[in-house]
């Protein structure tokens, strides 16, 4: 049994069958990548996992509990954190505040009317946020406006925010999309370090083969809403079906 079990999940938008019959099992403490050409249903699948979409059929179990019908914040409280394709941070707040909010969410739950205590008096929360900023090499930027960070730093901050909740499963949606090669490599190194140092399962949706093959232990190839094959990176590289799926895409694009 994996920590995340997706069984027979299907999702239809009007006439379009976005997901056919998806089965997926993500092993605990592994790095699992989901790849596929444009329109393969990668994002739809991810949205079904975090509560943004509810699949028409099938089940999604996280650690033995169903996530279906729960709201995104409830699923997050179960231990699933999500990193977005374009970094979603609190752009109007300082870097430090960005890091403190998930710490509070972890400690106090989905809602706490903490209107009278002051932030400086929350020593344990400050310590935790500072610690995470150091881990992310961002301690010198703590008073900066998060919106004025560089693209790469925003990504680091977002990953740090997710990690400060100590999630059991980290979902990443094309974390290096639109990044320069140097930033991409930094992100790869960061993710490698995270998966080595922490008890965490990482599921990653990615377009960039370089990223996938340097990180993943297992790869699922999705095409036209159904998993084509699931295997180790080495076997995926040589698989003719995968080549066909990707080759087909390049021909269309040309």
């Amino acid at each position: 049994m994996g920590i995340l079990e997706v069984k027979n999940v299907g999702k239809r938008f009007g006439g379009l069958q976005a997901l056919g019959d998806v089965n997926l099992s993500v092993k605990e403490n592994s790095v699992h990548a989901i790849i596929g050409p444009n329109g393969a249903g990668k994002s739809t699948l991810l949205n079904c996992l975090v509560g943004k979409l509810i699949p028409d059929t099938g089940s999604v179990m996280f650690d033995g509990q169903s996530v279906l019908g729960r709201k995104p914040y409830e699923i997050n409280q179960m231990g699933i954190s999500r990193v977005f394709q374009t970094p979603e941070i609190f752009a109007d707040l300082s870097v430090m505040e960005n890091m403190m909010i998930p710490c509070f969410a972890k400690r106090d739950g989905a809602f706490q009317l903490n209107a009278i205590s002051s932030i400086p008096s929350q020593k344990d929360m400050i310590e935790r946020a500072e610690h995470m900023l150091e881990d992310m090499n961002m301690a010198d930027k703590r008073e900066m406006h998060a919106g004025s960070l560089s693209r790469g730093d925003k990504r680091r901050l977002e990953i740090g925010m997710c990690l400060s909740q100590e999630p059991r499963l980290l979902l990443l949606d094309e974390p290096t999309a639109g990044m320069a090669r140097a930033d991409t490599n930094n992100t790869i190194d960061l993710l490698k370090q995270i998966s080595e140092e922490r008890d965490i399962t990482i599921a990653i949706i990615e377009h960039d083969m370089h990223v996938v093959f340097s990180l993943a232990e297992r790869i699922t190839v999705l095409a036209q809403g159904t998993p084509l094959v699931e295997d180790t990176p080495d076997n995926i590289k040589g698989n003719p079906k995968v080549r066909e799926a990707y080759l087909g895409e390049t021909q269309e694009a040309a």
């Binding site: 914040y73 409830e74 997050n76 979603e88 609190f90 707040l93 909010i101 969410a105």
Partner: peptide, 19 residues
Amino acid sequence: MMLRAVKSNQQRLNYTGLN
């Protein structure tokens, strides 16, 4: 701070386990 976070980015707030 949470109220300012609501104004800044509700999406991130929801995916940070906050209602």
